[in-house]
């Protein structure tokens, strides 16, 4: 009995850590898509955020005489945000200003981001010398520091307090995004831009500015997913294994699963995490069965997509103008 409980707690914590990576990705993408832009560059941007943070932390730790965890954290955070912002700006300039095809631009950005990150990731490992594995242990420790709130209630700390601060930050961002989108004038304007840019324009909204803002802020949030993965999930190391890309696509799927609602992304992300790692907790799985389990998040996304399409509830549909560019004088 005790082992079953331990197993369940272990699954929950695994799901929450894993889910946080994709939650960042999907929150950023949700914000971007609300402005009518489908950014398939999310995996690339997560890569850029991850490698950006790693480079910042690595340069700090190798150059500082005695690195302080808190400083490393701020440097890593800042450099991750700058790198992902760069990704967002590339995408924005191409799709908003030059009105390039969003799908092509996004996919290209994914290829670019993963290439860039793996190139620098490999180089950093080489620079770090030694056994060939880079590690920014000091900075990572700041990311992974946990705060235990209670001692008395059994299992509470294990389930709710066992994570670095970015797990909670993701939830806060989700709540803030949800509030902004649903309850503020800015959110109303943003929704209008994604639904019908011509209408928004005629109503006096600066469509271009909203699109840029949503896409760039969205990219920054997505990039945090990469940073969390590198600093917390794999503990300040790097591996050229393509994992971030796989997680990036899960994040895109999660946007659909959550029907473009940030709050739904929270439990959706944890559900995806639980489904993805379920095989670990069911004994006697062959290697091929494991891969089938990893497919489950996509399967539930498809099921959600089907049920949403069948119910045809307007509020659950993607922004109407998603994927199309807007030009005021177009006839």
């Amino acid at each position: 009995m005790g082992t079953v409980l331990t197993q369940i707690i272990s699954l929950i914590t695994t799901a929450i850590s894993f889910g946080t990576v994709i939650m960042y990705g999907s929150l950023g993408e949700t914000l971007t898509e609300k402005s009518g832009h489908l950014n398939l560059g999310v995996p690339g941007i997560m890569y850029m955020g991850g490698i950006g943070g790693l480079i910042g932390a690595f340069l700090y730790e190798t150059n500082a005489a005695s690195p302080v965890p808190g400083v490393g954290l701020i440097i890593a955070l800042a450099s991750a945000l700058v790198c992902s912002l760069l990704g967002g700006l590339i995408y924005s300039f191409l799709t908003i200003t030059l009105r390039a095809n969003q799908n092509v631009t996004g996919l290209t950005l994914t290829i670019f981001g993963s290439g860039l990150a793996n190139f620098f990731g490999g180089s950093l490992s080489k620079l770090a010398g030694g056994v060939g594995q880079i590690s920014v242990a000091v900075t990572s420790s700041a990311f992974r520091a946990t705060q235990h709130l209670t001692d008395g209630i059994p299992y509470f700390d294990e389930i709710f307090c066992n994570y670095g601060f970015m797990v909670y930050l993701a939830i806060i961002i989700a709540a803030v995004l949800s509030f902004i989108i649903k309850r503020t004038s800015i959110g109303l304007n943003l929704r209008a831009v994604g639904e019908n840019p011509a209408t928004a324009d005629a109503a006096g909204i600066n469509v271009i500015r909203y699109k840029y803002a949503a896409t760039c802020v969205g990219a920054c949030i997505s990039g945090l997913g990469g940073l969390y993965y590198v600093m917390d999930y794999i503990k300040g190391t790097w591996a050229n294994d393509g994992n971030i890309e796989a997680l990036g696509w899960l994040a895109v799927a999660l946007v659909i699963f959550a029907t473009w609602k940030p709050l739904r992304s929270i439990w959706g992300a944890y559900l995806f995490g639980a489904l993805y790692w379920l095989y670990n907790f069911i004994p006697g799985q062959s290697r091929s069965m494991q891969e089938i389990f990893k497919m489950l998040p996509y399967l539930v996304t498809i099921i959600v997509l089907i049920s949403v399409s069948l119910r045809r509830k307007k509020e659950d549909q993607p922004p109407s103008w998603l994927g199309r560019s807007y030009f005021r004088e177009d006839r």
Binding site: S185, L188, N189, A192, A200, G204, I205
Partner: peptide
């Protein structure tokens, strides 16, 4: 009220 930004909170 679209685009009027009368107040931060709708």
């Amino acid at each position: 009220v679209l685009g009027l930004n009368e107040s931060f909170r709708l």
